[in-house]
């Protein structure tokens, strides 16, 4: 290590580059293979075409699952953000007995394996007849997304100078107006970041979803999972690329709004 600093540096940088390659390998490979059109999985692609993409768009199952995932993700995002906003307000702005317990309850889903939660949620909503339904899957995704929205919104809320809100109050804004005109706009980055993360978690979530939905409310990840049990053709690659692009858009949005590292 101490022989030649230049050589050491090159070796170190090469190592880092290789590790990054490993980390991003599946995404890169999926991208390449998505331009293949054979019925089976093989590498390298023998053609370059958008055939697989066309097939995806003609696949009724995938398209309808895509829309369902989109709707479910949007509802989950909205509800998680609303609940998260209220919870964050109470945690940041109020002192009350049991606050620590509430804080723990909010963070606890981070600590429990998703598969365990999945079985529990399945057991709870099955007797209610909510298995394989929109309300069921939305509920199932709320528990795991609210911690994230609370985190991003709490961060934004703590950064809001309460003097600014007081200034608005003194200058004639009712508490309701202060909320809509001052507090809400100031925490907007946290709201949006929390919302898109919640959306994305719901949109990408497979573990819990697989326990909750089967046919009627199947989401895109569950459809892909079931498809992959039998076939691995490049259609999935094309679909994956679309999913990845959505993730990239979300990542860039979150990074811009509050910084990715703080949000995760």
């Amino acid at each position: 290590m101490q022989s030649n600093p230049l050589l050491g540096r090159i070796a170190w940088n090469t190592l880092i580059a290789l590790l990054y390659l490993f980390l991003l390998a599946p995404i890169i490979v999926v991208f390449i293979i998505s331009f293949d059109t054979r019925q089976y999985l093989a590498f390298p692609p023998e053609s370059f075409s958008f055939g697989s993409y066309v097939k995806v768009f003609q696949n009724v199952k995938f398209i309808s699952a895509f829309w369902r995932s989109l709707v479910i993700g949007a509802i989950v995002g909205f509800v998680a953000v609303s609940a998260g906003m209220l919870l964050s307000l109470s945690l940041v702005r109020y002192q009350f007995r049991g606050k620590a317990a509430v804080g723990f309850l909010i963070l606890a889903p981070f600590l429990v394996p998703h598969i365990v939660l999945a079985v529990g949620i399945m057991l709870v909503i099955a007797p209610l007849g909510l298995l394989d339904s929109y309300p069921g899957i939305v509920l199932a995704h709320l528990g795991i997304t609210i911690p994230y929205t609370v985190r991003t919104i709490t961060m934004s809320l703590m950064a809001v100078d309460t003097r600014v809100e007081e200034a608005a109050l003194v200058h004639g804004a009712s508490p309701r107006m202060v909320f809509w005109r001052i507090t809400l706009p100031l925490v907007r980055p946290g709201l949006i970041a929390g919302g898109v993360i919640a959306f994305l978690i719901s949109f990408d979530e497979a573990t819990i979803s697989l326990f909750i939905v089967s046919v009627k409310a199947s989401t895109l990840p569950t459809e892909i999972y079931h498809y992959l049990e039998y076939s691995t053709d490049p259609q999935i690659a094309a679909l994956s690329v679309i999913l990845i692009l959505i993730s990239v858009a979300v990542v860039m949005m979150v990074e811009k709004l509050i910084g990715l590292r703080k949000a995760l």
Partner: peptide, 13 residues
């Protein structure tokens, strides 16, 4: 933030 199903598929490839 990319689906683990997708990345698993990548490894299948």
């Amino acid at each position: 933030l990319t689906s683990s199903v997708v990345r698993t598929y990548g490894w299948m490839v």
